Simulated assay, not measured.
Amino acid sequence: MSTTWAAYRRGRRQSRQAWVLLIVLIAGALGGVAWFFTVGQFAVAEAPGNGPTEAPVFDPSWMRPVEPVQPVPVDSAVDALETLPVKGRAVKDNYDRNEFGQAWLDVDRNGCDTRNDILRRDLTAAEFTAGSKCRVASGELREPYVGQDIHFRRGSESSSAVQIDHVVALGDAWQKGAQQLTAKQRQSLANDPLNLIAVDGAANVKKSASDAASWLPANKGFRCHYVARQISVKAAYRLWVTQAEKDAMKRVLDSCPGQQTIRAME
Rank of each mutant, 00 (worst) to 15 (best):
M1V: 08
T3G: 14
T4H: 11
W5F: 04
R10G: 09
G11Y: 01
R12F: 05
R13F: 02
Q14S: 14
Q14N: 15
W19A: 12
L22I: 14
V24G: 13
L25Y: 10
I26V: 14
I26D: 01
G28P: 05
G32H: 07
G32N: 12
V33R: 06
W35S: 05
W35A: 06
F36R: 09
F37T: 05
F37K: 04
F37A: 02
T38P: 11
V44Q: 15
E46C: 05
N50Q: 10
P52N: 05
T53I: 00
A55S: 14
P56F: 06
S61T: 14
W62I: 02
W62L: 04
R64F: 08
V66P: 00
E67T: 13
V69Q: 00
V69Y: 00
Q70M: 13
P71V: 01
V72L: 12
V72R: 15
V72K: 15
D75R: 03
D75T: 01
A77W: 06
A80N: 09
L81A: 14
L81H: 07
L81C: 06
P85K: 07
P85N: 11
G88P: 05
R89L: 12
K92S: 09
D93I: 02
N94Q: 15
R97N: 00
R97F: 00
R97G: 00
R97D: 00
G101K: 06
G101L: 05
D106Q: 12
N110I: 03
C112S: 02
D113W: 02
D113T: 00
R115D: 01
N116C: 01
I118N: 07
I118C: 07
R120F: 00
R121I: 07
L123C: 11
T124F: 03
A125M: 13
A126Y: 08
E127H: 09
E127T: 13
G131P: 10
G131Y: 07
K133M: 10
K133W: 01
V136P: 09
G139N: 01
R142C: 04
E143G: 01
E143T: 03
Y145D: 04
Y145C: 06
V146P: 07
I150L: 15
I150R: 03
F152E: 07
S156F: 02
S156E: 11
S160L: 07
A161F: 13
I164M: 07
H166T: 02
H166G: 06
L170D: 04
D172S: 11
D172C: 08
D172W: 13
K176F: 12
G177V: 13
T182Y: 02
S188E: 03
N191H: 15
P193G: 00
V199N: 05
A202P: 03
A209Y: 01
L216H: 07
L216P: 06
F222Y: 15
R223C: 05
Y226T: 00
Y226Q: 02
A228D: 12
Y237M: 00
V241L: 13
Q243T: 08
A248P: 04
K250D: 09
L253Q: 14
S255T: 08
C256E: 05
G258D: 13
I262T: 13
